[in-house]
Design a protein around this nucleic acid. Structure first.
Length: 320
DNA sequence: ATTATTTGACCCCG
DNA sequence: CGGGGTCAAATAAT
């Protein structure tokens, strides 16, 4: 029984919020576009293209979310074997495939795996293999493992919230490059953040999160962007709050350089913000186990998400 | 010196 | 028994 099938009201709420977040993003992008068009022409349309691309992604996601009435079990465990259609740059054309996938999932293909924590997934695409930019989100993660998965070309990396021990935050995620399309990553989130980041940090840090990509083959290219698809399945256990949906994988740059300030050059990224929010707390270690009681407040709530979304998206018109 | 990552071992579940 | 997920010691990075 893995819950997940019929959408609960909290699922719906989450979906609506995710949708709202996407739309807010689109709105923000449109504003930027307007501003840009009104300004001095210059970069030969580069910026416009980036913005349009960003909008396209957002609209794409919005549609998917809207369709998520059928999305249930996330469980997009990467397709068993390659040859699967490499999705074209996150285009709208993929919807049909997506929808059928949803249906299939609904039809019965639920994988029965762990049930307790809310779980949802996203797919993130980068534009070049090189720029395996970590799909970073506003939370800080600590990698705790990597494993080769049977039948998969690339290993799966396991992350948990940096504040797991200090703040009893149970959020974790798994990231794996899909074998069919090296530019596409499956990101599966488990649990909600209950750490401080979830409450007031709209940010991220840890520019050095280039871990998993180390496994990638060298290639070339230079820019990246966008999240492609989102599907989640909050599970029973109270308040599924997929903060993950909000995080459109902002990039971090190929960390060849010691560029601590991660200034979002944000060229073509639809999500350039990074504010540092490092909670440097306890030191060396781990087990301070704060068993704090604040630990289970379902803080990662949708309202928060929305605020966050709006704040982020509407505030971001500053990067150009 | 401190914190993060790597990686083999271990554990649990199907 | 095998595979996926996690732990934790060793190592690397800052």
């Amino acid at each position: 029984m893995e819950g997940g099938s019929s959408s609960s009201s909290s699922d719906r709420y989450a979906e609506r919020c995710a949708l709202a977040a996407e739309l807010a993003r689109v709105l923000d992008t449109v504003r930027q576009l307007e501003a840009h068009m009104g300004g001095p022409a210059d970069d030969g349309g580069e910026r416009c293209r980036a913005l349009v691309s960003s909008m396209r992604s957002s609209v794409d996601r919005s549609i998917r979310i809207a369709m998520s009435c059928c999305v249930v079990t996330g469980a997009p465990e990467s397709p068993p074997s390659a040859d699967g259609s490499p999705r074209s740059g996150g285009g709208l054309d993929d919807h049909a495939a997506d929808v059928s996938r949803c249906r299939a999932a609904n039809a019965g293909g639920q994988s029965k795996k762990r049930k307790t924590l809310p779980r949802w997934s996203t797919q993130v695409r980068v534009n070049s293999v090189q720029d395996v930019t970590p799909l970073e989100d506003r939370f800080s993660w600590r990698k705790y493992g990597q494993k080769d998965i049977l039948g998969a070309k690339y290993p799966r990396a396991y992350f948990r919230c940096t504040h797991r021990h200090t703040q009893s935050c149970s959020a974790s995620k798994q990231v794996q490059r899909t074998d069919g399309d090296p530019l596409l990553f499956d990101v599966v989130y488990h649990g909600n953040h209950t750490c401080a980041q979830a409450t007031h940090c709209s940010t991220i840090q840890s520019p050095r999160l280039a871990e998993i990509w180390q496994t990638q083959p060298a290639g070339q290219g230079q820019e990246q962007s966008s999240v492609c698809a989102v599907g989640f399945n909050g599970t029973e256990e109270g308040a599924p709050a997929p903060q993950g949906l909000l995080e459109p994988a902002p990039l971090s740059f190929p960390s060849n350089k010691p560029e601590p300030a991660v200034v979002a050059h944000a060229a073509s990224n639809d999500f350039p913000e990074w504010t540092e929010c490092h909670v440097s707390g306890a030191k060396n270690v781990p087990d301070v186990e704060l068993t704090s009681s604040t630990a289970n407040s379902p803080i990662g709530d949708m309202e928060f998400m929305l605020q966050l979304a709006e704040a982020d998206f509407l505030d971001n018109s500053r990067y150009f």
